[in-house]
Amino acid sequence: MFQATKIQAAKQLGRLFAMTLLCAAAVGAHGAQADTYPNKPVRVIVPYAVGGGGDIVGRPLAQYLSQRTGQRFIMDNHGGANGNIGMDMVAKAPNDGYTLVLALTAQLAVNQSLYRNLPYDPVKDFEPVSLLASAPYFLVVHPSVPARNLAEFIKLAKANPGKYTYGSSGNGSGPHLSMELLKSKAGIDLVHVPFKGAGPAMPALLAGQVSAMFASYGLASQQIKAGKLRVLAVSTANRAVSMPDVPTVAESGVPGYDSNVWYALLAPRGTPKPIVARLSSEIATLVKSSDLRQRFLTDGIVPVGSTPEELGAYIKSESTKWDAVVKQSGATID
């Protein structure tokens, strides 16, 4: 019996030793893989059509990473279903570091609350790499609205519940949910008029067909400068570098309000951590570049940069925040 026990213990030690060798080999393989990464072109999926905000952030990123690594980082636009098609492609792609995704707030913190059957899980199916950049929305109104600032607009809306309308780029979009968050915090009643994109929504606002809208800097800045729209506030917690004289919503009497659109780089779940760390480190250097900062700020976008862990925590906190707003608004997309 004692001999059998010794034999059993020896077998267990043998199995443990074999497992240790396998783990060491795997770590060694991943380390070697990271040392030579990338050794072929890398595809960066943008889950939107060509010409959107994803391209404004993604193309400088791809250009920089190509220069730094000596391999091409290729932007590959796959729009549709509010970004779900592109996200699903990357979730099912090989986890070797050669397929990445440049995702926005909608895909990572909103869609899981809007869609009943989302084809991907924003937390379980991806490895966070880095938070690249963020951009504010500007609350603008048609000049016919008799409000010079946000406090006056809130007072006006409270005195006339349901009278004033606001446009958005679609049900569940960033501008829609940003206004729903304002409605909730300020206790006002505005009527939502969704459009099929920000492009159609802006002419409706300029024509006075809707009263107000949260719009990006690129979409609204020229109209504000031309006096065709009046800007009341910026959506972020801090004032925008692109329009420093515009007060925040929080400064204007709605404490705790904060909304933005943000851009993040992710890889399929299981991508070797040394590769993820290499990409994150390159982006940390990129966002400090004065040329890139100026290029982004011209478009109203602020470079950020983060560790994978910081991005993972941010996705979870943003998901919790926007889930509550979506439920309160009643917005759904089947």
Rank of each mutant, 00 (worst) to 15 (best):
M1I: 15
I7M: 15
Q8K: 15
Q8Y: 15
A9V: 15
A10E: 14
Q12V: 15
L13R: 13
R15M: 13
T20W: 15
L22R: 12
A24H: 06
G28E: 04
A29K: 12
Q33I: 14
A34Q: 08
V42M: 05
V44S: 13
A49L: 04
G51Y: 00
D55W: 03
G58W: 04
R68M: 02
T69D: 08
M75S: 14
A81Y: 10
G83T: 05
G83M: 02
G86Q: 06
A91L: 08
A93Q: 07
A93W: 07
P94T: 07
D96N: 03
G97T: 09
G97K: 09
G97D: 12
L100R: 08
Q107V: 03
L108G: 05
V110G: 13
V110N: 10
Q112T: 13
Y115D: 14
Y115Q: 06
P119K: 05
K124V: 11
P128A: 11
V129S: 05
S130N: 06
S130P: 06
L131V: 00
L132D: 06
L132M: 05
A133L: 09
S144D: 01
P146W: 07
A147Y: 01
N149A: 01
A151P: 01
F153C: 05
I154P: 13
A157T: 06
K158T: 04
S168Y: 06
P175C: 04
H176S: 06
L182K: 01
V193R: 02
G197P: 08
G199S: 11
P203R: 06
A204S: 09
A207S: 12
M213T: 05
A215H: 02
G218W: 02
A220P: 00
S221K: 06
Q223R: 07
I224Y: 00
K228V: 00
A237E: 01
N238Y: 07
R239P: 08
P244I: 04
P244H: 03
D245V: 07
D245H: 09
V246Y: 11
G253M: 04
P255F: 10
P255Y: 00
N260D: 11
W262I: 07
W262L: 06
Y263D: 09
Y263K: 10
L265T: 10
R269C: 07
K273H: 12
V276S: 03
S280L: 07
K288D: 01
K288S: 12
S290V: 11
S290N: 02
L292K: 05
L292I: 07
Q294H: 11
F296L: 10
D299R: 12
D299I: 11
G300M: 04
P303A: 07
K316S: 12
E318L: 09
T320H: 09
V325P: 14
G330E: 09
G330Q: 05
A331C: 14
D334K: 15
